[in-house]
Each structure stands twice: as structure tokens, then as C-alpha cells.
């Protein structure tokens, strides 16, 4: 797994993908920081993330769309799947590499906390709790993006599918409460309020595990139908 993590991190950092992702993320967060906090003279760092969660919908595919579809298109999938590494370790390697990029990018948002600290006394605990929830949400999104990338060799299709499903998860609860169980953004909203809720943690983790497992199954299944 470590070999795959190292290689994936190298690919993110040697190509523009990692920088485009981090740059876009921080650019949009900076705009939100100005609009929601600076302009309204608020020091609530966590407010930044109510809007920030929607950013994930659109920029997660930057990180995930190439994960397996590019390997499949270039034929390097053959190198991976004929190596003695298990499919599970390959999938987890890719998932954690994307997760590490996400963690580092999110860690940069603490700069905004520093700026707010200069002007007032924002709660560090609530800020960390929000970041923790945001990370769980991000990992859940990465797992779905990775799954979408495993089912097609076209990166555009993978990203459109990812954004489409995230948008559906976001808007379906407005149509009926029945769909609210699918809304990960709704579940995230407890974290900026300073609450740590076990059911929400379980939801995020099980969503991630489900799509990691589905990715493993897709790759395993393709061996027999390929």
C-alpha cells in the first residue's frame, strides 16, 4: 500500500493536479472568508465551512477522476493488477494518497483561523471539530469519486458522474425528507455547531467504506469479465 501511496503522491505533486486542486480550494475558501466573515466582521471560523462543504461537490473530481480511469486508458492498470499487490492495497493506497492531499489542503485553512485570532478569540475546539467533520465528509466524497473513476476509462464521465451524484445528494432532501438520509452535507452541519455526533461519524465512515469496497469489487469483477 505504501508503494502506491508514494507513487500517487508523486503523481499529484509532479503534475498540475495537486496544485490545481489546492489552488482552487483555497481560492474559493478565500472568497468565502472575505464574504462570510471579513465583510460581516464575524470571527466564527466554522461559518466558513457551511459554504465550504459545497465547494467539495465541484472540486473533489479534480482529485479523483484520474485515479483508475487513467490507469485503464493508458494500460498501466495491467502493471498494477499483475503485480503481487492485492487489489485492496492498491485501492486503499490511492484512497489514502488523495486523502493526504486533502488533509494538507484543509490544513491550510488554519491560516484563516490565525487571521481571526488576530482580531478576536475564535474557539479552537469548535474549529478543530469542524475541520474533523469536514475531513470525514471529504474522505466520503473521495471514496465515491474513486468509485466513479473505477467504472469508466473516461475521466470526464467519471467527474460528471461524481458531481451529478453529489448534487443529487445535496438537493434531493429539498424535494422530500425521505432523501435526507443521503445528504452528507446536512449531516456535516452539526460539526460547525461544535457537536460531535456518533451517528454522523458512522454515516461518513460507512459511506467511505462502502464505496472503497465497491471499487474493490468493480476491479475484482472486471478481471473475470475483461
Amino acid at each position: 500500500m505504501l508503494a502506491v501511496i508514494k507513487k500517487e503522491l508523486k503523481s499529484y505533486l509532479l503534475s498540475p493536479i495537486g496544485y490545481v486542486f489546492a489552488g482552487l480550494f483555497l481560492l474559493i475558501f478565500s472568497i468565502f472568508f472575505y464574504v462570510t466573515l471579513f465583510a460581516s466582521k464575524s470571527i466564527k471560523f466554522e461559518y466558513l465551512f457551511y459554504n465550504g462543504a459545497t465547494v467539495l461537490t465541484f472540486i473533489t473530481p479534480v482529485l479523483t477522476m484520474r485515479m483508475f480511469s487513467e490507469e485503464r486508458k493508458n494500460g498501466t492498470e495491467q502493471l498494477l493488477l499483475t503485480s503481487p499487490r492485492s487489489i485492496t492495497s492498491i485501492v486503499l493506497g490511492k484512497f489514502f494518497a488523495a486523502g493526504i492531499i486533502m488533509i494538507f489542503t484543509e490544513a491550510f485553512t488554519l491560516i484563516y483561523f490565525g487571521i481571526l485570532k488576530y482580531f478576536g478569540n475564535p474557539s479552537l475546539l469548535v474549529a478543530l471539530n469542524t475541520l474533523f467533520g469536514f475531513l470525514l465528509l471529504s474522505l466520503a466524497y473521495i471514496s465515491f469519486g474513486m468509485f466513479a473513476s473505477s467504472i469508466t476509462e473516461n475521466q470526464i464521465v467519471a467527474s460528471v458522474l461524481t458531481i451529478g451524484v453529489f448534487l443529487a445528494m445535496w438537493f434531493l432532501p429539498y424535494m422530500s425528507n425521505i432523501f435526507s438520509i443521503f445528504s452528507l452535507i446536512d449531516k456535516f452541519e452539526k460539526y460547525p455547531e461544535g457537536l460531535i455526533s456518533i451517528p454522523e461519524i458512522v454515516t461518513f465512515v460507512s459511506f467511505s467504506v462502502l464505496f472503497i469496497l465497491l471499487t474493490i469489487i468493480v476491479l475484482q469483477r472486471r478481471k473475470s469479465i475483461k
Binding site: A3, K6, S11, L14, S15, T76, R85
Partner: peptide, 22 residues
Amino acid sequence: PEGTPLYYDLTVKEFISYMAEL
């Protein structure tokens, strides 16, 4: 494999090292 699939963002040495690790 047929068609020489390679990781184009790696150098020759990095690619062979990655293969060794895999």
C-alpha cells in the same frame, strides 16, 4: 504488456523503482 504502458509522469529510474516496489 503489449503497447508498453508506462507512467509518463515518472522518470525511467522512478518507474523501474516503482515496479520493484510493486
